[in-house]
């Protein structure tokens, strides 16, 4: 079955590479998802508080550590991007690996945060009134963690390509996408942490 096909991706008329533009749109969609959660929290809280079914509690300290890890990993991913841009391939791999490790540490800290909450009797499933607010913290952090897992998969792909010499100053698209998405994840967690800290 012979048919004609464009030999490679057409270069006509791109203002921004489609992959990167699609990422921006995906980030907007993710923001709307978390906006829904945050709005639900804001709307639900006074209503439930009036019925004595909402209790304030301290967020686990591990969540704060997660925020710090997110900040540090933002720096390492930036350094990885900068080193790829200047063709310092070894440095690029080092910083990418560091970011990957920090991503894993972030996940572990989230898990420890949940254990911390459980140890204080704040279960995901409600048995006491305060569990309504705890359910929100579990749900929001879980959905964010799923985003982070997506980010770690992306980092793994980029790292693999970096070791195959496929990330350098002339081939930066994937690096830029990873860089942008990782910053988004970090910023999102910091926002969510501050929101839950002050609102809860």
């Amino acid at each position: 079955m012979n048919t004609k096909i464009a030999s490679k991706k057409p270069k006509e008329n791109y203002r921004i590479e489609p992959m990167r533009f699609n990422l921006v749109l995906m980030i907007i969609a993710s923001c709307m998802l978390f906006a829904a959660f945050v709005s639900a929290y804001i709307v639900h809280m006074p209503d439930a508080a009036a019925k004595n079914t909402w209790t304030e509690f301290d967020l686990p300290v591990q969540f704060m550590y997660s925020a710090i890890v997110a900040l540090i990993s933002s720096v390492t991913i930036y350094l990885a991007y900068r080193s790829a841009k200047s063709d310092e391939l070894m440095l690029n791999r080092v910083y990418l690996s560091a970011t990957w490790l920090l991503g894993v540490v972030f996940c572990v800290l989230q898990y420890m945060g949940w254990l911390n909450m459980i140890s204080r009797g704040l279960m995901p499933v409600n048995a006491d009134p305060e569990d309504i607010s705890a359910s929100y913290v579990y749900a929001i952090s879980l959905i964010h963690l799923l985003h982070v897992l997506g980010g770690i998969i992306l980092l793994t792909v980029t790292l693999t390509k970096a070791f195959r010499y496929q990330v350098h100053k002339k081939e930066l698209t994937l690096m830029k996408v990873t860089h942008t998405y990782w910053h988004f994840l970090g910023l999102l967690w910091i926002y969510l942490y501050l929101f839950l800290y002050f609102a809860g």
């Binding site: 829904a36 995901p124 499933v125 409600n126 359910s135 579990y138 749900a139």
Partner: peptide, 20 residues
């Protein structure tokens, strides 16, 4: 995405016992 959020809460209520 907002419907997705609503659906996820519904799944949590149905399957994990939360009370959103």
């Amino acid at each position: 995405p907002v419907l997705l959020g609503a659906g996820l809460f519904l799944i949590f209520d149905r399957s994990f016992g939360t009370s959103f």
